[in-house]
Amino acid sequence: MINEILELFNTYGSNILNAFVLTLQLTLLSFVIGFCGGVFIAILRSVAPRPIAIAIRLFVELIRGTPMTVQLFFVYYALPVAGPKLDPFTASLIALGINSAVYQSEYLRSAMNSVPKTQWEAAISLGLSSYRSMIYVVMPQALRIALPALTNEMIYLLKFSSIAYFVTLPELVYTAKWIGNRTYAFIEAYTIVALFYIAMAFAISEVMNRLGKNIAVPGIAAEGMR
């Protein structure tokens, strides 16, 4: 088995490395989009005027309530009817990014709710507007509290990025299947890919742990920096 794996890697190494780079890019970029979107949604939902907050809530429920594959198909196949045709990478990035934004906004909201209301009162008492109080006082504390959940989200994204397979993006799972089809060594191909996923997941959790330690502040529990 080990020999076969090494052999496969010898032959298809460059394909696998390219796939690895694509998966990594897709994961990190969609996380960044999801993070920015998540912060934006979480803040708007708590301080925006009611109609806007309701509209955002509906959007959140829509995204949470539909399978990610459907969302990806929608972006890849249905959106071009009205706009430009997107390449597989961009389509996957948009679908994963939006989906993650919605989930991250929910993690952030629950973290924001655990920041004592008195922090907010102190902020507005200084003359900060609602938005600024959120941005400078509540959100920095909420981020520390939400960090473990966000780490989870990034590892989810790593694995969910494999749905890009459905729109023919040659990421890791797609490449494993492609190698399997050519060599019938499915098990070996998927084993290689699995090792890459495990290594990335481990790296993500390591990096986020360090980040957590770096931004740790006495008195704010980033509960379970497990």
Partner: peptide, 9 residues
């Protein structure tokens, strides 16, 4: 405030 409410971060 009674409980000071310094910004914890």
């Amino acid at each position: 405030f009674q409980q000071f409410n310094l910004f914890a971060h």
